[in-house]
């Protein structure tokens, strides 16, 4: 592992992709949190082999994320979480094959007991110490409060844009926020900025993370007359934390973050994972969708195993799409077309 001084010269980005890593906590330590959406490419680095060169049996999202994160010229450190095997082993490969400092954060799979909440909070403290060893600052209470407030406000502002943007553009907006911690210029520069036409068919998305390339999915659905009215993938609003409890920020910042992130974000890895079913059922009901799109990556067992349960739990049709990291192939496009035809 590099000395902190050497590491600092590389940049200040702490790169992560899990929604369970609070960006504001890293920012409060004086470093740059960068929630990376994998581009879906194999490797962005220059010379040498990518740390994850295995393809068979390996989740393409994880492979893309690890390889892109460690080859980012501005990377100071990478934060992975324990919510899936693939990311855990990805941390092993980063440590074995690169000099990029890697922090593996325990995000408990069980929830509902004070002990696991305390474990998550303790992991935040450990993450803070990791940031300090990389040249970050110790948290100053006043600064922490202002950063947490800023993130909380910006997050609400981003979410408020959902009604003004197409699903694809909203996904890109969320990606921008994840990378920069702030909202894009008011004129939505760079976005196509348009809502689907009236009479479109409302559908919802649920599933794991999407690569940036896979945001095209939303456009393909739009082309087939769909309006994606909720994005329950890991790249969408489902993975947004709850509002921070402003009253407790000063005396218990890690407790507040634990409530907003660990206890509020529903996910498929949780045991039991009834929370994500409740989230989806509520979204389907409140937004009156006529179909649900279930997206998962090849080799992602935790999402894959639940496809049939989601199908059984829904009163509307479900389309199960397996992605391999790249752009959609014709077969997927045809299935989308057939699915949408059935919904009209």
């Amino acid at each position: 592992m590099d000395s902190p001084g050497t590491a600092l010269r590389r940049g200040k980005k702490i790169i992560f992709t899990s929604p369970f890593v609070p960006a504001e906590w890293i920012a409060a330590h004086g470093l740059v949190p960068w929630r990376m959406t994998s581009g879906g490419s194999a490797f962005c680095g220059g010379s040498g082999a990518p740390p994850v060169s295995v393809e068979s049996g390996v989740c393409a999202y994880m492979r893309g994320f690890i390889n892109e994160a460690v080859s980012d010229p501005q990377v100071l450190g990478v934060v992975l979480v324990t919510t899936c095997d693939q990311m855990r082993r990805g941390a092993d490969l980063i440590n074995l094959r690169t000099k990029v400092p890697c922090f593996l954060m325990n995000v408990p799979s069980t929830c509902g007991t004070p002990e696991v909440s305390a474990l998550y909070a303790a992991e935040l403290e450990r993450l803070g110490r990791f940031c300090v060893t990389l040249g970050g600052k110790r948290v100053e209470p006043e600064r922490l409060v202002s950063i947490l407030l800023e993130y909380d406000i910006n997050r609400r502002m981003v979410l408020a844009r959902q009604n003004d943007l197409s699903a694809g553009d909203f996904a890109r907006e969320l990606q921008f926020f994840g990378e920069n911690g702030k909202v894009r210029d008011e004129n939505f520069a760079g976005l196509a900025c348009g809502r689907p036409y009236a009479g479109s068919v409302p559908v919802g998305f649920i599933g794991g993370p999407l690569t940036a390339r896979q945001f095209d999915l939303f456009d393909v659905f739009a082309d087939h007359g769909a309006e994606v009215v909720f994005n329950g993938t890991e790249s969408g609003e489902r993975a947004f934390p709850a509002r921070l409890d402003l009253r407790r920020i000063k005396e218990d910042p890690t407790g507040v973050l634990t409530e907003a992130y660990f206890r509020a974000i529903p996910d498929v890895f949780q045991r039991p994972n009834s929370g994500i079913f409740a989230w989806m059922e509520k979204a389907v009901r409140s937004r009156q969708v006529r179909g649900v799109v279930f997206v998962r990556h090849l080799w992602c067992d935790k999402w894959h195993a639940e496809a049939e349960r989601f199908r059984a739990a829904l009163e509307v049709p479900l389309l199960d799409i397996e992605l391999d990291g790249g752009r959609m192939n014709e077969r997927v496009r045809n299935r989308i077309g057939a699915f949408m035809e059935g919904l009209r």
């Binding site: 324990t82 095997d85 855990r88 069980t110 890895f269």
Partner: peptide, 11 residues
């Protein structure tokens, strides 16, 4: 669950 294998946890 937690630091266990995904196949088993999922099943």
């Amino acid at each position: 669950v937690g630091a266990t294998c995904d196949d088993f946890s999922a099943i």
